[in-house]
Design a protein around this nucleic acid. Structure first.
Lengths: 123, 123
DNA sequence: ATTATTGTATTAAGTTATTAATACAATAAT
DNA sequence: ATTATTGTATTAATAACTTAATACAATAAT
């Protein structure tokens, strides 16, 4: 796992994204144990608190479970992973729709525009 | 125009939004002259540079034209206003779609989810 | 030509957010 | 019981961003 950390955005958000992807893609299988905060921090060459911050967020999203003194593990509930994915998506979406409405777009317009843009996307 | 400025977000972004709405809604008609930066700043009870920052952004978006020493005016081109609106929208959208794709969503999924959420919106 | 008004550039101050350093608390392992 | 390992909490340092203060430059108005 090549932790790719750029400096144009907060490190902890990048950690969140990459760990998420590792969970979604099975690098960390459902139910498996995660390395300790300190180990993960060292591997990513990051301060333990920064890694901690990322892990706490992932826990809030339901992807990770914390066992007070015996470390953390990935949830065993596959639906939970799907839900977390969807929850994150919906956060993005409502944030997005809110902005669009503030800009004065009607719902129909929004759908039309997105539809066009999606069609215009590569692949 | 009751400049409503809260402190939970940068002031200049709020200025941008409100001026945009004033343009879209005709408070500042196409081609009309804007008050000077200093006047607008005073009216909004804000530092001139903060207002300046907002105006520069609006200019980049094509809504406003700057006449070096004789102030600024709203563009006369109605299509320009529409385009600016659309441009802003598309920035929001591509940013959004990018995130969604990073999260591993397929295009079809994205459309479906948005469709559902829009249907669930009030009004 | 002078003055007043315009936008701009530069710099500093203030504020918020991010990251790091360190100490603490709980418990599994021995 | 002791020790080592775990996550947590608190505080400090750093960095980034936002806002403000001030000085500059260009030109329309007189």
């Amino acid at each position: 796992m090549p932790w790719e950390l750029k400096s144009d955005r907060p490190i902890y958000t990048q950690l969140i994204e990459q760990i998420e992807l590792m969970i979604f893609s099975g690098v960390y299988p459902l139910g498996s144990k995660l390395p300790s905060v300190r180990d993960m921090a060292q591997e990513a060459a990051v301060n333990p608190n920064t890694m901690q911050k990322a892990l706490v967020k992932l826990e809030e999203d339901g992807l990770i479970i914390t066992h007070r003194t015996s470390g953390r593990s990935i949830t065993e509930d596959a639906r939970m992973v799907e839900m977390a994915k969807t929850k994150l998506a919906q956060e993005q979406i409502s944030e997005f729709l809110e902005k669009m409405q503030l800009m004065g777009f009607e719902q129909k317009e929004i759908l039309t525009i997105i539809d066009n843009m999606v069609k215009g996307m590569k692949k």
